[in-house]
């Protein structure tokens, strides 16, 4: 028995499982094989995970060798181009999770407002097969219209939700005062408007529109022109 065999035996004899399996040579062999397989899988798995290969992202790029200085100037140009995509004037950012609306210009927050955004609830009418999801639409929008003393033309879901029959005449749908003093249209029936339920500001309670307090709404109505960008997330 050489020195290495002695060291291995001494080390293995310290392991209780190995000592227990001493009288059973087949069991020892199974243990040795199992350990070998485990080590092999660990090594193979690590190799497979980290083995080389040209980055697909970089491979997609036309391979034209450039120097570090070229790359640096190209990156600076790209940074300027990205910065050029930012809105030039004032814009609105609506955080539907925290129910906050911020009026910003560049990186400066000009006004921080509490709002009520979509509840995320679903209304289904099995008889007609219609389904409404009350989410505030995310993405980039623009203020498309500005209305003073808006009149809410109640859609079908408002009647269904209230358990009322849907009227046949459109005049019966009008409800003055429900949207506050002003409304800023974002398109597809979504508005930034006022609310009668001011105590619910800061909660997700609306049917998709963005509700604001009277002062904040008046400020936005007076200061933001049509075409102002609105980012909702």
């Amino acid at each position: 028995m050489n020195i290495w065999q002695m060291i291995l035996n001494n080390t293995l004899n310290r392991v209780r499982l190995w000592r227990w399996a001493r009288p059973h040579w087949p069991l020892r062999r199974v243990l040795i094989c199992l350990t070998g397989v485990l080590v092999l899988v660990e090594l193979c798995g690590s190799y497979l995970a980290y083995r080389g290969g040209v980055s697909a992202a970089v491979a997609a790029v036309p391979q034209k060798a450039r120097t570090a200085a070229d790359l640096q100037s190209a990156n600076e140009r790209l940074l300027k181009k990205i910065a050029g995509q930012k809105p030039a004037g004032e814009y609105l950012v609506i955080d539907t999770a925290r129910n906050r609306v911020t009026l910003r210009k560049g990186d400066v927050i000009l006004r921080d407002m509490t709002a009520s955004c979509g509840s995320g609830n679903v209304l289904e009418d099995p008889t007609s097969g219609r389904r409404w999801v009350f989410d505030t639409p995310r993405g980039q929008h623009r203020i498309l219209s500005k209305v003073k003393n808006p009149l809410w033309i109640k859609p079908d879901w408002a009647f269904l939700e209230a358990g009322e029959p849907i009227p046949s005449k459109s005049a019966e749908r009008a409800e003055p005062g429900a949207m506050g003093d002003y409304a800023l249209g974002l398109g597809q029936g979504y508005f930034i408007h006022g609310t009668l339920y001011k105590r619910m500001l800061g909660r997700n309670v609306s049917h998709g529109c963005v509700r604001l307090g009277d002062e904040d709404l008046a400020h936005l109505y007076r200061n933001l022109p049509i075409g102002t960008r609105v980012f909702i997330f």
Binding site: S119, N121, L123, G163, R203
Partner: peptide, 23 residues
């Protein structure tokens, strides 16, 4: 998401305030 199922042909006429539940 809370799903409310209603019927347009059989309005319930309920006006009682429902418990507040939102995502």
């Amino acid at each position: 998401r809370e799903v409310q199922v209603v019927s347009a042909t059989e309005p319930s006429g309920e006006t009682a305030e429902k418990p507040f539940n939102a995502l």
